[in-house]
Design a protein around this nucleic acid. Structure first.
Lengths: 201, 201
DNA sequence: ACCTGAACACCGTTCAAGT
DNA sequence: ACCTGAACACCGTTCAAGT
């Protein structure tokens, strides 16, 4: 970032902010930066193009529309989610999965807010969903029940994170974390009890 | 609605869609109808004014901005929420409160989606919040715990309804209702168990 | 007090033309 | 294949003028 290292290659024609070719990936990354900095309303195709040193219409060679760009941001948020390897302990694994989700959310709060509130229902890619289902299946839940338990957990996650993401400027991380864990542990206890009951009877 | 009953009073000047004075309430009600019919993106100040038979700028005598109008819609959605009188049974009362919330949501799905995803954190007016806290306090939860339990329940509600509202065209009401109740009962069991444990130790 | 029209400063996107 | 500029059909909102 120091100016000393800013060796600018000679340019022909109109000055550009950079020489890298425009790609879909660069567009999405820059769009995410704009959303994090200026909010969703601050993301315009014209402003984004200017930041990339490109004509507005060039964006449309890589992205169908502003709406498609928002979908791409949503995809990028969830692509960032990685669940840790399962240990076999139901409580520990559910906790770890929920915290991995929360960590991703806190890494890009505004983009995650966007991702969680867009229509397409499945809030995560197939990878993490399969992993989370695996945790519940290994604990002994039959397939249909595992899906319902997972959906219940996702509902809590989405609601809790939506609230937390909106509260980020207002309250400190430790308080928000305690709040998140209270509800999470309540839910996990319900899940483990349901699991125990299912095994018993 | 029948044309027979459309007795149109004589008019002077340019034809108007109606003669009622423009009020904030009429603006908000019409805006909600637009959102339900055409989605949030279909709500424009210009289009809304046209529907009300009024110049665009007249809206600004009653509403500060489009954003303020969305806040007003959010308020109207939650104003529609009424919790049934509590019976004293924790499970029955929590169930009834959650279903009252869901009923309101299903009455205006798109406006509720808007309301649940807007930044302001408290998703309900003070009335229902106090009532819900009362249910938990009467069950024996100390004040701080009651607040946390309530927030956990609200997180589930918000997440579950957001998902359900997006699924409305796709799946039938009975299936969605069963899905909602599964998670709700799981959560209520966790709450009643925590309550029992708190009373015991 | 409430309503209006013109004007301002923006938008996303289509299209035909460039390289 | 990718980029560009002009143009189209919109936006929300300010402001000064009407009643």
């Amino acid at each position: 970032m120091s100016p000393i290292h800013q060796t600018v290659a000679p340019r022909r024609g109109r000055p550009r902010r950079d020489r890298q070719p425009l790609t879909r990936q660069r567009i999405v990354a820059e769009a995410m930066a704009v959303v994090e900095g200026a909010g969703l309303a601050g993301l315009t195709m014209r402003g984004l193009a200017k930041r990339l040193g490109v004509d507005t219409m060039s964006l449309y060679n890589h992205v169908d529309s502003r709406d498609a760009l928002l979908d791409a941001i949503t995809g990028a948020v969830f692509a960032d989610l990685r669940l840790p390897p399962a240990t076999g302990g139901l409580r520990a694994d559910v906790r770890a999965a929920a915290h991995a989700f929360r960590d991703t959310a806190l890494r890009h709060p505004r983009c995650t807010h966007l991702a969680l509130t867009r229509r397409p229902d499945s809030p995560t890619g197939p990878g993490p969903v399969a992993a989370a289902l695996g945790i519940l299946r290994r604990a002994g839940f039959p397939p249909a029940t595992a899906v319902r338990v997972l959906r219940t957990g996702l509902a809590y996650l989405v609601g809790a994170l939506l609230r937390e993401l909106s509260a980020i400027p207002a309250s400190d991380d430790a308080a928000r974390r305690a709040e998140f864990d209270f509800g999470l542990d309540l839910l996990i206890t319900a899940i483990t009890d349901a699991d125990r009951d299912a095994r018993r009877g």
